[in-house]
């Protein structure tokens, strides 16, 4: 039951975010502080969500070059910077993970 509540709210929140300014963009201007805050959403909030998944392995921080996901994140950031292309970024990152994992498996 609680899963259905979660599903319904995820759908409602996301739809509201997609619709609200499409309808209101021509009628209201958002306050300056809100516009300025929105600009920092990717850098501040998305980073907080994405990066721990790459740095933390098995419950602890792993900054070693043997952490395939950390390397993948660095490669992905570089590719994203040069190409601005989501598919290339994900592709380069996943390729890094697989190659590093394979190399480690072949050495042990």
């Amino acid at each position: 039951m609680i899963v259905w509540v979660m599903i319904a709210l995820m759908i409602a929140v996301t739809f509201a975010e997609r619709y609200v300014m499409l309808e209101l963009a021509n009628r209201v201007t958002l306050p300056m502080w809100l516009l300025r805050s929105l600009r920092f959403v990717p850098a501040a909030l998305l980073t907080a969500i994405a990066v721990p998944n790459l740095i933390i392995r098995g419950g602890s921080v792993d900054l070693s070059p043997l952490n395939a996901r950390l390397l993948a994140g660095i490669v992905a950031a570089f590719v994203a910077w040069r190409t601005r292309n989501v598919i290339y970024t994900i592709g380069a990152g996943m390729l890094t993970i697989w190659v590093v994992t394979l190399l480690q498996a072949s050495q042990s």
């Binding site: 994405a50 996901r69 994140g73 992905a76 601005r84 994900i90």
Partner: peptide, 11 residues
């Protein structure tokens, strides 16, 4: 996470 990096970096 990799997909989000592609959204974060240009911003």
């Amino acid at each position: 996470s990799l997909g989000m990096i592609a959204i974060i970096v240009p911003n």
